[in-house]
């Protein structure tokens, strides 16, 4: 029997998801034995013409990482959807929008102005900014436009499974590949990771008091976490209670609190809201002033609670007045 065909593709990502596949290290040779990799742009020279030549369903699975922001990326993922039996959203950006999704709290015009007009080192008296079409000594050059919004993969195409994480740890990649090879797949739409919150498997869980109360949040800028104590009990915001486990607690092992890259647990619609609710119910403020001080101690709720998930949250993006050219 022919080996199953597998495709890897990247959209709007940093390349870290590709590195996690390279980090399979010696196991990558086993993967190459078990499957035929028919597309992996970072390392192999298979091209668009090859993808177009596939019969629909010929390729067993496409692992697609990155958020979607360019029409060119949309065309690619739609083509892969047509040709592949399964599509797996690989990593936080494809799953939730990821850190680039924080751009949904800004506008295209602000991004352009800060980069090309206002940066401290930019010398640009003519106010030149990149153009979709430009002419240099008669030579016509083109650049792609980018969408005003960053989107998660399932806002653009139908997605069968999700592999969470920024990036997904290679152990979960191996689990997913094996599940596909052995045809032991969970129901469509599943996130291939444990269903419990990170707190449940956290090595510091023992030190999390049942009646946890927080009077004020500490800043990592000016305080250092205790190497063994629950971060919330120690006064640092940790997304553990609202975040799916399965990451191997790597940030925790680095003595740093969770920022939520695995996304919400299955029963939660909006990870940021869930965490905000958890925090609010733990706040030990009994006067209006104490409440205000407690709220103020959480600097940047948007960028912290929605660090990885703004595009798929109930907020989705910052509101912009109608008619604004973003």
């Amino acid at each position: 029997m022919a080996k199953p065909k597998v495709a890897f593709y990247w959209c709007a990502s940093c390349g870290g998801c590709e590195e996690t596949i390279v980090d399979l290290a010696e196991d990558i040779l086993k993967v190459v034995e078990a499957v035929d990799i028919v597309l992996w742009p970072v390392a192999l020279d298979f091209k668009l013409k090859d993808v177009k030549a596939w019969k629909p369903g010929e390729v067993a699975v496409a692992f697609i990482n990155g958020a979607v922001r360019l029409s060119e990326q949309e065309e690619w993922v739609k083509l892969l959807r047509e040709k592949c039996s399964l599509v797996v959203a690989f990593g936080s950006c494809a799953h939730l929008g990821g850190i680039p999704g924080l751009a949904n709290a800004t506008t295209r015009d602000e991004i352009i102005a800060n980069k090309y007009l206002r940066a401290p080192t930019v010398n640009n008296p003519e106010g030149t900014v990149p153009q979709e079409k430009s002419k240099v000594n008669g030579f016509e050059l083109e650049l792609p436009n980018f969408w005003k919004d960053v989107k998660a993969l399932d806002e653009v195409i139908d997605v069968d499974y999700y592999l969470p994480g920024c990036p997904p740890p290679f152990e979960t990649v191996a689990t997913a590949v094996n599940a596909i090879l052995e045809n032991k797949l969970p129901p469509k739409g599943s996130v291939i990771a444990p269903e419990k919150a990170l707190c449940e498997t956290c090595p510091r869980n023992e030190s999390k008091p049942d009646d946890l109360t927080i009077t004020s949040f500490k800043r990592l800028a000016t305080s250092t976490p205790d190497p063994e104590k629950c971060f919330l009990a120690d006064g640092f915001l940790c997304m553990g209670p609202a975040t799916r486990g399965g990451c191997g607690e790597r940030c925790i092992n680095g003595n740093m609190p969770c920022r939520g890259c695995f996304g919400p647990t299955p029963d939660v619609l909006d990870a940021g809201l869930k965490m905000l609710s958890a925090v609010a119910s733990r706040g030990a403020a009994d006067t209006e002033q104490a409440s205000q001080d407690f709220a103020d101690s959480l600097v940047d709720p948007l960028g912290t609670l929605y660090r990885f998930s703004l595009p798929v949250s109930m907020l989705r993006r910052r509101l912009v007045p109608t008619g604004d050219n973003q």
Partner: peptide, 24 residues
């Protein structure tokens, strides 16, 4: 546009946000 969407973030988080400029 990292220069723009990082505005408003606590600066100490930059050491965790900016690595996403490049996973390599």
């Amino acid at each position: 546009g990292f220069e723009t969407f990082c505005l408003g973030r606590p600066a100490e988080e930059m050491a965790r946000i900016t690595p996403r400029i490049c996973g390599v």
